[in-house]
Design a protein around this nucleic acid. Sequence first.
DNA 1: CGGAGTTGTATCCATGACGGAAGAACGCGG
DNA 2: CCGCGTTCTTCCGTCATGGATACAACTCCG
Lengths: 240, 240
Amino acid sequence: MDPGFEARLREGGETFEERDATLLRAVDEAGSLNAAANGLGRSYARSHERIDDLETAFGPLVERQRGGAGGGGSRLTANARRLLARFDRLRAALTGTAAVEETVLEGRVVAREGELTTVETVAGSVRALAPDVDRVQVVVRADSVTLHDPAEAPPAGGTSARNRFDGRVARIDRGEAVALVTVAVGEGDAPGDDASVADSPTLAALVTIDSVERLALAPDRPVVATLKATATRATPAPDV
Amino acid sequence: MDPGFEARLREGGETFEERDATLLRAVDEAGSLNAAANGLGRSYARSHERIDDLETAFGPLVERQRGGAGGGGSRLTANARRLLARFDRLRAALTGTAAVEETVLEGRVVAREGELTTVETVAGSVRALAPDVDRVQVVVRADSVTLHDPAEAPPAGGTSARNRFDGRVARIDRGEAVALVTVAVGEGDAPGDDASVADSPTLAALVTIDSVERLALAPDRPVVATLKATATRATPAPDV
DNA sequence: CGGAGTTGTATCCATGACGGAAGAACGCGG
DNA sequence: CCGCGTTCTTCCGTCATGGATACAACTCCG
């Protein structure tokens, strides 16, 4: 079951989406709306209409010229390029979060100040942004977990990363440039107690290969994981 | 222009989306598919068909019972509840990234190891995940920036947060439980030089009110911002 | 001056999605 | 044994989407 999404930009009742982005890009490459629509296997008339609609909401997108050398053509405006870049950024951000590994911890809310809560989980207590229910799932995205050398871990008061877990490396999955480090964060496990590592809850952290080497990460090495409360979101737990 | 998305879960050619989630939730509340479809203003026949299709891809979702007390009814399976929870987590994660403030820095790629690059920007050099182009926009999400007390900032080698900026607080926008802190990260600005703060590039950081107080953050106070390379994504810059 | 290859604009039509309606099967309760 | 409110199944009308086609307008070029 793989997660996905469809990115959108809304403005003035009109929504710009993937389909529109590919159309604009095709116009940019082909130099004419006709060729673009043709190349995409879409009808010229609809594409033309679509661009008209988009322009009323997002401002001028293509400069059209009819007649002339080669019969004319269309070019993207600077506004259109900015729109495309904005759309790309949104999609990149969403792609990141949709694709990245995540750790899910079930727990219950034990304190709350507005949206900010303290959630008690098997891995200890976590500060997270949570909706107004009692039992929640805390979602920790692997790319939001920072790992530290225990000797040099920042003191609890000196940083805005308010969640801190002492743990030990359980596993390292190396990729090309990044590595997924699984950290056992069982609360009361004594160092050297093998059984506890196998059983304790884990937290996945996505770090660069570089960091793996700088921190000399290896299975069973102690490590400190920190994560920001504002990057930690909770959702209602399923009441099975 | 506000960003948005449509979350999806794909499995076996079928895609589960918002519409389906609301249908399942309505069945859960109403206790019968008939009442659910009716309440949503959707046709029973279509809703029934849709659930059938979803079940062939995602496994059993509703236990149907026809006849009996009250004519029967439908209840969600545990599988359906897990699916809903999974969908909620995805949506929550996407909502977070779509809604959060972001800082965009233009720059050029000066080094690359696979997907991991070093990008030179006005705010200094940043390690980020970037596609294979020369000029990029680096996107830094405010909830991925961690702030530190300069005196207690972790040494560069002892943490997996590989990007580090020394700066000063430019502005603090307090919310209910969180605050958006704008940090001036100009490279060579001398402390006390007011003009440089106004001109230098800024980085937005989303932290809890709590952290604002612990770190005694206030305009013009020095602060260290760190962020992970794996949470920093770049996209091609628009070639205007 | 005509041809070429566009941009505009209008119209037709195939397809799919959806609601509405109608009817059969079901099983508990009165 | 009958009625009720479901779940199932089928058929039809409607609407939105989008391709296909046709045609006028335009302007540079040979």
